Amino acid sequence: MKSLPLLLLMLTLIQLNGQELKIDKKESLWNNFTYDMGNVFGGIGHSYSRPFHWKGKQWANFGYVTAGTLALFTVDDELDNWADGFRDDVPDFLVNYGIEYGNPENNYMFTGGVYLAGLFTKNEKLRRTGVLLIASATAGGFLQQVSKRIIGRARPKSGDSSSTYDPFNINRVFNYDSFPSGHAILAFSNAYAIAKQFKSPWVKAGIYTVGLIPGLARVNDGFHWISDVAFGTVLSIFIVESIDKYLDSKYDQKYNDQQKKVSWNLSFGPGTMGLAVQF
């Protein structure tokens, strides 16, 4: 009978310990969520602050992108007229996929789903991927919404030329909010971030191809010029890379231990222009 109090004490301690474990588990889920959301906003801020830290090479890359975009500006109308010859021949499922996948609501359903899967399965790599997807989409999405209102470029379907602008509209003016392409930014941000999970260049190329469809679908529908899509695609690469580097210091899980480096080579020749991107 003397051992009865000791037994009761042990049972009490076991019960309390079990309760503490449950509480810790619940707190760990919440702590992970708040930590990740902090990294989402931290990543967005980090990407926006990068131009203040650029040096010669980074400014050279920015110059290449600017020069390439301006070069495309000069042929936007010709390329749009050329696309008139095959617009009706593009399969509807490709056009519909491009429009729906690049839609912000559908995009956040996808990125949020990836993050929640990682959160509830306690998979840090998947959590980090979700954080990268959400932060990149938010950073790029907000930037393009502001840019559209400031630049006010006419869409192809407006009937005006690519050189027509109605800038500095705080309220959105439809048909004059073409540059850059939001669908291209959101879709290719996802593709570029997801492709980081794989080493195979063929798998990466396949994912990049799927990520390019929404932007090209918007060109086919007359919502964007090719320069809108090209600039949005390159911008998404810069954003994803900068946020991913920021997340390196926040998470232990890396993507295939790859060095994060983007290099550019812009070349001009008689009647030709080439832009090589190595990543």
Rank of each mutant, 00 (worst) to 15 (best):
Q145I: 05
V146H: 04
R149W: 00
R149K: 06
R149F: 00
G152T: 13
G152C: 03
A154Q: 04
P156Y: 08
P156M: 12
K157G: 00
K157E: 03
K157F: 01
S158N: 11
G159P: 06
G159V: 05
D160F: 06
S161M: 04
S162V: 00
S163K: 08
S163H: 04
S163N: 11
T164R: 08
T164A: 15
T164Q: 09
D166H: 15
P167R: 08
F168C: 14
N169D: 02
N171F: 12
N171P: 05
N171I: 07
R172N: 07
R172E: 08
V173Y: 15
N175V: 00
Y176I: 01
S178R: 05
F179H: 08
F179L: 09
P180E: 07
G182E: 10
G182W: 07
H183C: 12
H183Y: 13
H183G: 04
A184C: 08
A184N: 09
I185Y: 03
A187H: 03
N190I: 08
N190K: 03
N190G: 12
A191M: 02
A191G: 11
Y192A: 01
A193I: 10
A193H: 02
I194P: 02
A195Y: 00
K196T: 11
K196C: 01
K196F: 00
Q197P: 02
F198D: 06
K199H: 14
S200G: 06
V203M: 15
V203P: 10
V203N: 12
V203L: 14
K204N: 13
A205Y: 06
G206V: 00
I207T: 06
T209E: 07
T209Y: 05
T209V: 06
T209K: 05
V210L: 11
G211A: 12
G211Y: 09
I213F: 13
I213K: 07
P214I: 01
P214F: 14
G215S: 11
L216C: 15
A217K: 07
A217N: 12
R218V: 12
V219A: 15
V219T: 15
N220H: 09
D221H: 03
D221C: 14
W225C: 09
W225H: 05
I226S: 14
S227I: 01
D228M: 13
F231L: 10
F231K: 01
G232P: 02
G232N: 07
T233K: 06
V234S: 13
V234Q: 12
L235Y: 07
S236R: 02
I237K: 04
I239V: 15
I239G: 03
V240F: 04
V240R: 09
I243M: 06
D244Y: 02
K245L: 15
K245C: 02
Y246H: 04
L247C: 08
D248S: 03
S249N: 07
S249R: 03
S249M: 04
K250S: 10
K250G: 02
Y251A: 04
Q253T: 01
K254L: 13
K254C: 03
Y255L: 07
Y255N: 05
Y255Q: 07
